[in-house]
Simulated assay, not measured.
Amino acid sequence: MRAPTPVSASLDDLEPGDQALVAEVSPPHELSAWTAWLTSLGFEPGEPVRLLSRARPGGDPLCVRVGGSTYALRRAEAACIRVWREVARR
């Protein structure tokens, strides 16, 4: 069996139960204030994150755990958080 390969995605791309590491926070230019806000919540490079659940219907908001804290994030906010996750190569 081969070793897992790290894959870059946004936090919004994860499925409930998926775990990853924060790579960076990169909101659109017009929402640049979100960088400081999301970082202050603990979404810093190298921090482990886990998508716990998505609201139904529509999947918004998402319930996310970072470090020892749990937050509800809108999909637009979660899409600004780039993550590294491990996936098995086939």
Rank of each mutant, 00 (worst) to 15 (best):
M1L: 12
M1F: 06
R2L: 13
A3Q: 09
A3V: 11
P4Y: 11
P4A: 13
T5R: 13
T5G: 13
V7G: 14
S8P: 01
A9S: 13
A9M: 12
S10N: 03
S10T: 15
S10G: 14
S10W: 08
L11D: 04
D13Q: 02
E15W: 15
E15G: 15
E15M: 06
P16R: 12
P16I: 01
G17L: 09
G17N: 13
G17H: 11
D18P: 00
Q19C: 12
Q19F: 01
A20V: 04
L21F: 14
V22F: 14
V22I: 11
A23Y: 08
S26F: 14
S26E: 11
P27G: 05
P28Y: 08
H29R: 15
H29W: 10
E30F: 13
L31H: 11
L31I: 10
S32P: 07
S32R: 13
A33L: 14
A33K: 07
W34F: 09
W34R: 05
T35P: 05
T35F: 05
T35R: 14
A36P: 10
L38Q: 04
L38E: 03
L38D: 10
T39D: 10
S40Y: 04
S40G: 05
L41K: 12
G42Y: 10
G42S: 07
E44F: 02
E44G: 01
P45A: 02
G46R: 05
G46M: 03
E47W: 04
E47M: 10
E47C: 12
P48I: 00
V49I: 10
R50D: 01
R50W: 04
L51H: 01
L51T: 00
L52S: 06
L52I: 12
S53Q: 02
S53G: 10
R54Q: 04
R56K: 02
R56L: 15
R56Q: 10
R56M: 02
P57Y: 06
P57D: 04
G58N: 04
G58H: 03
G59E: 02
G59K: 03
D60S: 10
D60L: 00
D60M: 02
L62M: 06
L62K: 06
C63Q: 15
V64F: 03
V64H: 02
R65M: 06
R65G: 09
R65F: 08
V66D: 12
V66G: 09
G67C: 02
G68R: 11
G68D: 15
G68W: 13
S69D: 14
T70I: 04
T70M: 07
Y71W: 15
Y71Q: 06
Y71P: 15
Y71F: 12
Y71D: 12
Y71N: 06
Y71G: 14
A72I: 02
L73R: 03
R74W: 06
R74I: 03
R74E: 08
R75V: 09
R75S: 01
R75I: 10
R75T: 12
A76V: 15
A76W: 03
E77Y: 08
A78H: 00
R82Q: 08
W84C: 03
E86P: 01
E86D: 07
V87G: 09
V87P: 02
V87I: 07
V87C: 05
V87M: 05
R89S: 09
R89L: 11
R89I: 11
R89K: 12
